[in-house]
Design a protein around this nucleic acid. Sequence first.
RNA 1: GGAGAGAUGGCUGAGCGGUUGAAAGCACCGGUCUUGAAAACCGGCAAAGGGGCAACUCUUUCCUGGGUUCGAAUCCCAGUCUCUCCGCCA
Length: 419
Amino acid sequence: MHNIKDIRDNLDNFKKLISKRNVKVETNNISELDKQNRTLIQNKELLEKEKKDISKKKDQNLFEKSKEISKKIEKISSDQSQVKFKLDEILSSIPNIPLDDVPEGKDENSNLEIEKSGEIKNFDFKPKSHIDLGDNLKMLDFDLASKTSGSRFVFVTKKLAMLERALSNFMIDTHVNKNNYLEISPPLIANENTMYGTGQLPKFENDQFELVLEDKNDRKFLIPTAEVILTNMVKDQILDIKNLPLRFVASTPCFRKEAGSYGKDTKGMIRQHQFYKVELVSIVEPNHCIEELERMTNCATDILDQLKLPYRKVLLCTGDMGFSAEKTYDIEVWIPSEKKYREISSCSSCGSFQARRMKARYKNSKKETNFVGTLNGSGLAVGRTLIAVIENYQQVDGSIIIPEVLKPYMNNLEKIDNN
RNA sequence: GGAGAGAUGGCUGAGCGGUUGAAAGCACCGGUCUUGAAAACCGGCAAAGGGGCAACUCUUUCCUGGGUUCGAAUCCCAGUCUCUCCGCCA
């Protein structure tokens, strides 16, 4: 959510900045609605003052007049709240403004590769996909999942299930012990206001799994990412500056309808309705967002370094960023069967964009109340990491070598094979 | 599911129809004292929105939404949430 004051003072510049995003934004009505809104507020306050004065005087002769004023106030404030509603409706569906160093572009083709890391293994055989490997091992079952649940689900079984769990634990341990994140086991269901706070609502309702409840006004959603629930931990709060930064990590299932992605990655585990993800969230002073984004991204790549998986770091262009982000790095891991890098983490600074929606504030050193900055990043997407490990560590016989750092989490197992 | 209790400023917690935006304490900030710190003492300290270049000023807000009243944190109704007890249950 943008501050109407910032827009008001510099509408043309705002329009220019927002046009960098590859979205259509209706900015034309904003000025008019804002003007109407303020005029109505002024009129209302005038009447309220008048009424208040009468009440203070306690003069019986004026009581009738006070009643009349009340009626006028009623009318004018209903007009005002309608105008305000329309204004908020527009404002709440405008995405965040990209930072200056974000490359301009309309899709992923304009993303900027920042660095490559790790060595891409030269297989002396044709590397198989995780689908084939999982099928041969009889540890990934997509058909069964489609029977029990539908498309885009999977059963991960036996040693691969253990590997998935190991990955999750390894990531959490790293972020807690090495990177100073606070471990959280959060609710997986969020209410409407929480979803609004991080920007999933109102615009992306179709991407969410909503629960069916008797009470239509009580809306609840399965979280599409732990970002939603972790970031909202500070909503409606005024934090003490000495408690910042706050850093949270959680491993949770994520639920996504993936509406609009029909035909994309239909096979395999890349794009599922449900997947595990270890999520990092930071709550910081807004002027620390940029350095925190670097820190967070390093925490994510650290996992890949330790797993010895080749990856690259990409700076997303204006058109490819998420709704709430002002700057985003994607980490992409090498997938041998596809011979390309695939997103495994996305780290974003949201500036005060989400904080404004959540009313998450802090008192700065001058004792002024200000909105916090929020960041989120995957550290990492567990499902996709599982794919990356399976494919990058595959052997010619279809077995999977366990990465060194995961062995302690796998009862020191050396490799996963049919036995 | 049944029975109670509650929701007030960053926090704790008074107020229970009329300058109450709200006592007190804690926390925080400034000052005095001190070699320095602590303690003590003095002072300051809510948020959102509107107007103004500004000093400043106005309005709203004591869970939410209605109602009563000239006037509501205070009374009435509905709802939400939290806590305690009982039942059921992973």
